[in-house]
Design a protein around this nucleic acid. Structure first.
Lengths: 210, 210
DNA sequence: TGGGTCATGTAATAGGTTACATGATTGC
DNA sequence: GCAATCATGTAACCTATTACATGACCCA
């Protein structure tokens, strides 16, 4: 019993607006549900094909053969019914994965400075997130969305705001505590030494430490 | 550049205690970081082999050949160094996936009763989560953990508590609002009809609707 | 005519869950 | 002797991201 939830998000996005292309759908996902759901092109394009094949969506301008030109899709009646059916089903809990919390949990192994750095980064991102959310909220009037949808959108937005705010408060408290620890004892734990296996993780060198 | 974060959680769990088996590691993950990180046996056992092969962990009782008997592992010195190194690196943001919020976002398509049902389920789970977290917090004294670690554990626990509480508050507000909507207009949107494609999703029939 | 961005698509691959197969240990 | 649960491991399968390949459109 495959879930294939990409199909549902795509269908959902099609259910909101007029014709949209795969490209636009991706943009729309990013800008609306982006903070709690993501999809990549590698999922979206195949999904649109599947949905078309099953009559749940259809190409608007039936632009013949393989083309690199914009392809508009729209949801069909049966697509809409199918989507509604899914909405009523119990939602599934996705396996949680929060690497920040994981690292914080093991913070005792690395000394307070490391965790302080991570928390500051979380703080930075949450502040930014909060700004964005408030902006969106303020612009809500301009939004062309018809009313059944606006309400639900505001509900998700609102949850985002209060959770982000709560996280920010926690950051302050956590930083205060750890800075206390760091002051009472100079950074006790020695710096990491080069280890047996190469860490393939020079990756992004965002400034994590102060 | 593979991340293979399973290796790090496993290493982390080994770094906390004396020798542990794969089975115990899984239990420990569930019971400590379970609300923000999960691992399955299919990941843990191969990970233990890899770590052993690279000298980052070692079998304590070197129980010869393929055995179904308990195999204890411990972290090595280089394993610990490797783990610390990773702790200092910037954490990565995992792609968000919250099907509840996704369904709520599209709630306008299904009518208020559907979303009310989903929110009630979230409320139920969060209440239970909050109880659990408070229990853990209360039992913290009994916990045999040495001090560097306890503090970090309490920080993650605390974030869990305040976020859960915030979510619960939001549930109440959201329910109040949607119940208002539902009363002002009988359930407008028609029930879903059977659609073109079979929904492979009779799955778990947790009572989502009131 | 060249750069940016709009746009579509596929292949390789990583990452992870589930189901299955199997056996040991413990307590009744 | 049987059930529960402790315990290890593998194979099949999916899902999703990433990187790559390709080309259209716009505008300066």
């Amino acid at each position: 019993m495959p879930s294939n939830r990409t199909d549902y998000v795509v269908l959902g996005m099609l259910s909101l607006g007029g014709g949209q292309s795969g490209y636009e759908i991706r943009k729309a996902i990013e800008q609306s549900v982006g903070s709690f759901w993501g999809e990549s092109y590698g999922q979206i394009y195949p999904s649109l094909r599947r949905l078309s094949a099953e009559g749940l969506a259809e190409r608007k301008s039936p632009a013949a053969k393989p083309s690199k030109r914009r392809q508009e899709y729209a949801i069909t009646e049966s697509g809409r019914a199918f989507f509604r059916e899914w909405l009523r089903l119990p939602f599934q809990n996705d396996p949680p994965r929060n690497e920040f919390l994981l690292k914080l949990f093991f913070g005792g192994e690395a000394g307070p400075q490391v965790s302080i750095g991570h928390i500051r980064e979380v703080q930075r991102r949450n502040r930014q997130m909060l700004d964005t959310l408030h902006e969106i909220e303020a612009d809500a009037g301009k939004n062309a969305w018809q009313e059944p949808h606006r309400r639900y959108w505001m509900l998700t937005l609102n949850l985002g705001i209060v959770l982000t705010q709560t996280a920010l408060d926690w950051c302050n408290a956590a930083l205060a505590e750890l800075e206390g620890v760091a002051n009472r004892a100079g950074d006790e734990v020695p710096a990491a030494q080069t280890s047996a296996r190469k860490t393939g993780a020079t990756e992004r060198n965002e400034g994590v430490r102060p």
